[in-house]
Amino acid sequence: MASSIVELKVNGDTVEVAAPDHFTLLEVLRYRLGLTGSKQGCDKGDCGACTVLVDGEPVLACLTLARLAVGHEVTTIEGLMPAHLRAGGTGADPVQEAFDRCGALQCGFCQPGMMLSARALLDREPNPSRAAIKGALSGNLCRCTGYTQIIEAVETAIAASTERAPDGGSR
């Protein structure tokens, strides 16, 4: 089976990696690039743990062929904090910060995917309703929290962003 050098844009960097054609983006991120923040929970698109952003949209890395991500911007959980720092922020991305502050991270395994779904939602819609939050996260299974502190965390991130917005400090 064919292999090739895949040139991916991941978290702002252009990286070259050799991978067989059938390798998924998740396999390349985790096992070729060492970006193990994206998790594998089912490998069949049922759990959402491998959610990454491709051009800002949440997609499942386990069902994305790595070569088909060529030419697109891939953002993994490892990319959020550096992007926030580059944009002049301090500390982690407000979504990460809020998840930590609200206790939303129990085992933490589903949360990289969850936080990226939340990040994509807030980039698209800065002040979503509770129902919209639940809808946007309904493809990410969490087994620990009962979702309550996750939804609180997203609402906390929204509040943090809107509070900072007037002085120009929004993310």
Partner: peptide, 9 residues
């Protein structure tokens, strides 16, 4: 159809 990520894809 399915969930949010799968509709995006």
């Amino acid at each position: 159809v399915a969930g949010p990520q799968l509709r995006t894809m």
